[in-house]
Amino acid sequence: MEGFRRCIGLDDFPAALRGGVVAIGNFDGVHRGHQTVLSNARKLARKEDLPAVVLTFEPHPRSIFQPQAPVFRLTPASLKARLIAALGFDAVVEQPFTRHFSQIAPDDFVAAVLMEGLGARHVVTGQNFHYGKNRGGTPDALAQAGSARGFGVSVVEAFCDESGGIVSSTRVRAGLAQGNVSQAAALLGYRFTVEAEVVRGKQLGRTLGFPTANMALPNEVTLRHGIYAVRFRRADGRLHDGVASFGRRPTVDEAGQPLLETFIFDLNADLYGETCSVSFFGFLREEEKFEGLDAMAAQMQRDQAEARALLSGIRPLSELDLAIAF
């Protein structure tokens, strides 16, 4: 991310990046559909020798309008910024989304955010993008505003995958809820990845010869509970293969909160306090309640062997996958 700027609001946006091409959207997941919007913006910026900037919104608007039903965030802000940087952008602006901001008139959004805040020369967005009070700003309205105010507007059609279905964050979440991380990767264009701090657990795995790096994921994560072949990235960028369990540990702690526990192959290190990431390559099996710890340890040996075999043949799906999971 060298040279890349992650800006928290317009006040943090550097003057040197004004006057660029701005891709606008929530971009949760930065999936293949989002990537078509972002690719159009990046290509135009390069052609015109202009800064390439992404404008997104934090937190997810649904958390403001439906706080009782928070959305499963595929890419929290820090991970989304990593993905956007890997796609070759100069900056992301994370506009704070509040109820007050949601009430801004569409014309005022154009004037205050796009013109005064970013000095946009060209705006690129998807056909479903709406902005301003009651989502009153439409792509057509944005194009009219651009014509009146002197900036270009490109509206990118929805992207369909090889089956003809529109790629969406909702489809990705549905795949992950079934444990189908391969389907999710096909929609994302890279392996689904989570990022969190390594925390202390009960250290039971250590007594069985399988010490794990434990991460508490947000409550709204609906990834299917089970065992996965994964790749673990440390804070310094070093990668290690592993096998991970996500769930409630029914053999020892069925009432506990879901936890992601990763047994990292060929690594013995103190990871507590590190913010690390885990990329998911394959679903191995469901969680299982064993008769005892010996039976659980024997199954963990089999899981390790299966994960090693699966990971030995992996190849990157794209340049973005190469940047995130390889």
Score class of each variant (00 low, 15 high):
239 L>N: 04
204 L>K: 01
248 R>W: 03
182 S>V: 15
199 V>I: 12
234 R>W: 04
184 A>I: 13
242 G>N: 02
246 F>I: 13
197 E>R: 13
244 A>D: 11
192 F>K: 03
229 A>L: 12
214 N>Q: 08
184 A>V: 13
193 T>I: 01
227 I>R: 09
239 L>Q: 02
214 N>L: 03
187 L>Q: 09
208 L>Y: 01
216 A>V: 15
219 N>E: 15
215 M>T: 07
207 T>G: 05
194 V>A: 04
247 G>P: 10
191 R>A: 10
218 P>S: 02
202 K>W: 15
207 T>Y: 01
234 R>H: 01
223 L>C: 09
177 A>P: 06
206 R>M: 08
208 L>I: 02
180 N>I: 08
204 L>S: 04
188 L>A: 08
234 R>K: 14
195 E>T: 00
245 S>M: 13
245 S>P: 11
177 A>E: 14
206 R>L: 11
191 R>H: 15
210 F>P: 00
234 R>V: 07
244 A>L: 07
207 T>W: 06
217 L>W: 05
226 G>T: 10
190 Y>I: 06
210 F>M: 00
214 N>G: 01
241 D>E: 09
236 D>L: 07
180 N>Q: 10
205 G>V: 00
232 F>I: 11
194 V>L: 01
205 G>T: 10
248 R>Q: 14
240 H>Y: 15
192 F>R: 07
222 T>F: 07
202 K>P: 02
226 G>L: 09
181 V>G: 02
189 G>N: 00
229 A>I: 13
237 G>A: 00
190 Y>S: 02
205 G>E: 14
197 E>C: 01
224 R>H: 15
225 H>M: 11
237 G>V: 02
236 D>W: 05
196 A>M: 05
209 G>F: 13
176 L>V: 08
208 L>W: 01
216 A>W: 12
219 N>H: 11
229 A>H: 07
248 R>M: 06
180 N>K: 10
212 T>W: 01
194 V>M: 04
192 F>T: 04
209 G>D: 03
183 Q>E: 10
230 V>T: 14
183 Q>V: 08
193 T>S: 01
226 G>K: 11
231 R>K: 13
214 N>Y: 11
174 A>M: 15
207 T>I: 14
222 T>G: 08
250 P>Y: 03
209 G>S: 05
176 L>W: 12
214 N>M: 12
245 S>K: 09
